[in-house]
């Protein structure tokens, strides 16, 4: 084999990810945008800067940061939604009725991911349930284009992956002896204190695993933004990876994007596990 055929190791593929792009903006648009909070945060993070009157933005990185932020927010939302449900099913329901509640959770969990996403299109369509309802009640006169709103993708991702948060929490919580809760109540603890001192410490491994699962699914979400937004709004980073890999001239850039993304996600998960004092073995325990 000749020397030239040897693949060379290089980091140039990563440069594309951090590269800044000039954003052509009129003076008014510039002034308007510089008042937006989001853009200001980008500025503080060094993702957006001005040079000789021109605005530059590191599009790859802003996209990455935006997606991760959404993923973290989805996780937080899912946690808030799920904690009461997990508590209700695991600890606040008589045993003979738990079966039916579990059924109510398992059925949507087992239905194919894509179907759960498609189910939402009927709701958020321009002539869908939500718009019809809002127009019928007189709140709106013109339909809202939900497909263009980042919030929609956010909600549908939360809907799609919320049950991955419920089950780990529920499984750990149900190993808590209900007598402990009654003992704490009996000793005069308020419901809030019972949760803070008894239920949450016990459920911690389940909470951690649920958060990690939901975060990774949200961060890696590809189907939801693709089906819900239909290209009508800013890309999710997973879509960026797809486009870089399959639609740019060199797929190596896509590989660099993908590798960088994995690394960042692992770092976040690692940090989270360290803070929560979770070990990998907890993943087996919450099954």
């Amino acid at each position: 084999m000749r020397e030239a055929d040897q693949p060379k190791l290089t980091l140039t593929n990563f440069d594309v990810l951090v590269a800044a792009t000039r954003i052509p903006l009129s003076a008014e648009a510039k002034a308007a945008e510089s008042r937006e909070i989001g853009k200001r945060i980008y500025g503080l993070l060094g993702l957006r800067y001005e040079q000789s009157g021109e605005v530059y933005e590191r599009l790859g990185l802003t996209n990455l940061a935006r997606t991760l932020l959404f993923a973290v927010m989805t996780t937080a939302l899912a946690l808030a939604i799920c904690y009461p449900i997990a508590y209700k099913v695991a600890l606040a329901t008589p045993a003979h009725r738990v079966v039916w509640l579990m059924l109510g959770l398992i059925i949507p969990y087992a239905i194919a991911e894509l179907m759960r996403i498609y189910a939402w299109t009927t709701i958020i369509d321009n002539r869908g349930v939500l718009n019809s309802l809002l127009i019928w009640t007189g709140i709106l006169t013109e339909p809202i284009q939900f497909a263009r709103m980042p919030g929609t993708v956010f909600v549908v991702i939360a809907y799609t992956y919320v049950l991955f948060m419920v089950f780990p929490m529920l499984n750990v919580m149900s190993t808590l002896d209900r007598n402990q809760i009654e003992a704490a109540r009996d000793l005069g603890a308020s419901p809030w204190r019972v949760h803070r001192r008894v239920v949450i410490p016990h459920a911690k491994p389940g909470i951690a695993v649920g958060c990690i699962a939901t975060f990774m699914l949200a961060a890696g979400a590809f189907s939801v933004p693709r089906i819900i937004s239909r290209g009508l709004q800013a890309e999710w980073f997973s879509q960026t990876i797809y486009n870089k890999f399959f639609e740019s001239e060199t797929s190596n850039v896509g590989a660099a994007y993908s590798f960088a993304y994995t690394l960042v996600c692992f770092l976040i998960v690692g940090l989270f596990m360290w803070i929560m004092q979770t070990r990998l073995k907890d993943f087996a325990r919450v099954q």
Binding site: A219, S238, Y242, G254, T262, C265, F266
Partner: peptide
């Protein structure tokens, strides 16, 4: 543990790629 579980923790798109 890490080797066997890390694919479950990686974004799905990365595994495919």
């Amino acid at each position: 543990w890490w080797v066997l579980l890390s694919p479950m923790l990686a974004p799905g798109i990365v595994l495919g790629l």
